[in-house]
């Protein structure tokens, strides 16, 4: 599966703007990567190269940092991002079922796969988002959905897809929508 269509176009002047704001010293590495990821949802290679060229941060530090922290990703994300909490409270209350259910309607079979084949959604596991008393919880974009059963996750996703006009590649998605 190629997600070439999800690759971002990087505007060098935008990257330079972040560098001007956040600084060129090594301690700016994390904030710079955060700015890039906030804009593109991931760290495009082009943006990384621009940071290396225009700051005191070298490639080994920048990639070292980018691969160390869970927040950063080097692959493009789908047009919508789903975060499933796998903190302790969510785990003991069945967070795994949210993944099973979401991946099913998204048609994601391969374990390694985290983005639907049509680029609509990426499912990411995160550690605790701080609503543990409402576990299990997931986020679609910024919106949090509390107290979920596996089936609820699917229903919310189907609804969301309808509002944003995405097609869900999983085979039962339309059955559920009825």
């Amino acid at each position: 599966m190629s997600n070439a269509s999800l690759e971002a176009t990087v505007d060098p002047s935008e990257v330079q703007g972040w560098i001007n704001n956040l600084g060129t010293e090594p301690s700016a590495a994390v904030p710079l990567l955060q700015a890039v990821q906030r804009a593109f949802g991931y760290l495009p290679r082009k943006a990384m190269d621009l940071i290396i060229e225009n700051t005191e941060i070298n490639a080994s530090q920048l990639f070292g940092v980018a691969t160390f922290y869970a927040q950063f990703r080097l692959d493009p994300v789908g047009r919508n991002l789903i975060k499933v909490c796998h903190g302790t409270a969510c785990h003991v209350q069945g967070a795994d079922r949210l993944n099973t259910s979401l991946r099913h309607v998204l048609g994601m079979k391969d374990e390694e796969e985290d983005t639907a084949s049509n680029g609509s959604y990426t499912v990411e596991d995160v550690a605790c988002i701080g609503c543990c008393s409402l576990a299990p919880v997931m986020l679609i974009g910024e919106q949090a959905y509390p107290n979920l059963k596996g089936a609820d996750a699917q229903k919310h996703l189907v609804k969301h897809a309808k509002t944003v006009g995405e097609i869900l590649p999983g085979k039962d998605a339309d059955k559920e929508a009825k």
Partner: peptide, 25 residues
Amino acid sequence: IKEGAGAFVCGEETALLASIEGERG
């Protein structure tokens, strides 16, 4: 403010310092 970047070990004080300095935690 320094925003963390999703590493549990960065809560440990010396790793947190490394993280503030822009390194791997």
